[in-house]
Amino acid sequence: MDKSILTLDKGTRCTAWNYSGQRLAAGLVDGSLLIYDSTDPASSTFISTSRFKVQESSILKVVWVPPEYGDAVACIGADGTLSLWEEVTEDTEGHHWKLCKCFDRNTSQVLDIQFGDAETCLKLVAAYSDGQIKIYELLDTLELEKWQLQAEFQNVIDLVSNFGHASCVSASISWNPQRSEVQQSSFVLGFSSNVPALNSPKVWEFDLDHQRWLPVAELSLPEEKTDQVSAVAWAPNIGRPYELIAVATQKGISIWHLGSNPDADGRLSAQKLATLSGHDSEVWEMEWDMSGTTLATTGSDGMVRLWQSNLNGMWHEQAVLTPAS
């Protein structure tokens, strides 16, 4: 059953739903941000409730801040800027959206960001066009203004080498969705760049003893290491003894099995379960459902595809949704 639930304004470039699916943020080509709300939790009609100007250039991506930190979004602009906006109600101004933080703009552009570690200390991973990864930490649980740079590194296994002249077109980040105060936070990140070593997706985990981020797995076969990565997605794990991560390159979508017990060097075993082809060309987005069994993808062929494993562990395309007038 399909039904249209809201109409987007002209010039919409990107959309993002909040944690509960009750609010949608839409970024526009003129740098405005629109918020659509459903007032009643049972209804699925949405109306636009706020519109405000974030920046002069087009908004490329909107990401919601985890709900433990309020109703807030991060916006990536076409000019490579990154800003945080928050909805607040104040005595003087009433209910409105205010700018909390504009991250320093240097020569490189922000390509992708994701929030993680909401249980303990909120972190923001940002991938930049020069191949750098920056991790910011929120200093105050109630104020989104104060952030501190916790770490900065490149997406390479060999931490000594440095690639000075990297130029990246896109990047994709996905946190391990597990909510746990015990488990160390980790995320996977891949680039699409002119420096082969940066491209392949690596799983980064925070090492408490040494207080630094370490690459614990690389999700590519030796012959694929240079492939440009267009999207990564870490599946929710509701009780599997292993993790599942989907990686999209120009060669197709691959499903990776990531072990949970590190070897002597602290590495996690990674095994490729399947290579799936379908979108023919670039994969735009990938998202797992809340049980982590169905993967939905979109790509430049204009289709939505659903992927699943059968009981024998064979991954296959389950369905194709094709827009039709």
């Binding site: 993002a16 699916g21 987005e285 998202e287 993808t297 979109t298 289709m303 949704l321």
Partner: peptide, 12 residues
């Protein structure tokens, strides 16, 4: 462009 998001349950 097409953008996807899973809502609660099996709603896409």
């Amino acid at each position: 462009r097409l953008s996807i998001s899973w809502a609660r349950g099996n709603t896409l």
